[in-house]
Design a protein around this nucleic acid. Structure first.
Lengths: 124, 124
DNA sequence: TTGAATGCAAAAAATTTGCATATTG
DNA sequence: CAATATGCAAATTTTTTGCATTCAA
């Protein structure tokens, strides 16, 4: 299961389910098992949950941390950026408001370079 | 409807529904109406959608923009911070990756000052 | 044998859609 | 009358839970 999340980089429960089923094995693993395992891994701090997709949560391996997720509202692509850019922000927030932001679970929405170029002002 | 979102600051469809129903009127407004209206307002750019809660989307008025949402994973409180802190981040990202981040829809997860103090290392 | 993990089925919760009826202009 | 918005009911989608079973220590 952890292997699945690691292999996928970041995935919705549905993705994980598909991945596990593709790997074969009978009977097929059940969705409830995926949800339960994912919840457990989250508690253990081995995977993190982030709302990347609009409808479903996404999980990504903890080692994969230290990245920002850049979600393009036009094409849906999820890119990544080093987290150091956000560290300043986190430090600043902490100093000013006392809020300790978890930068490893950070998702930013916007438009990727390609989409911004294709259609600078157009919606999805 | 817009008034409801404005009055609430930020709210899930359920919150909006409750607010409208509390305002009275028979028959009670229906959930589908709320979803449809919210989707419309979003398209018009009058409200923004952000995944503040774990299960449901949250909407907040566009004028309310220029704020970061700070969601505490311990107590669930949603605080706000001026957006300027994130502008640097956005500018930096754009320069380095070409990604144009929408800072007005930004939600950060972490722990608010009160919770961090109560229990510096404890989970929710 | 006891406890953790799992499949399966059913329940909840959140969101969407079809359709007939208002309501507005 | 035409176009739009709304209520209502039913369908979808995503996630959770109860229960009986299985597997391993």
């Amino acid at each position: 299961m952890l292997a699945a999340v690691r292999a996928l980089g970041h995935a919705t429960p549905e993705d994980v389910l598909a991945h596990l089923r593709a790997a074969g094995g009978t009977p097929a693993v059940d969705a409830s098992t995926v949800y339960r395992a994912l919840a457990l891994l989250e508690e253990l701090g081995l995977v993190a949950r982030t709302a990347l997709e609009r409808r479903a949560d996404s999980f990504h391996p903890a080692e994969h941390g230290g990245h920002l997720h850049l979600v393009c509202d036009s094409c849906g692509a999820v890119a990544e950026a080093p987290a150091d850019a956000a560290c300043d922000l986190a430090a600043d927030l902490r100093r000013r408001t006392g809020f300790t932001a978890d930068v490893t679970h950070l998702a930013l929405r916007g438009r990727c370079a390609a989409c911004a170029q294709d259609d600078p002002r157009e919606g999805p």
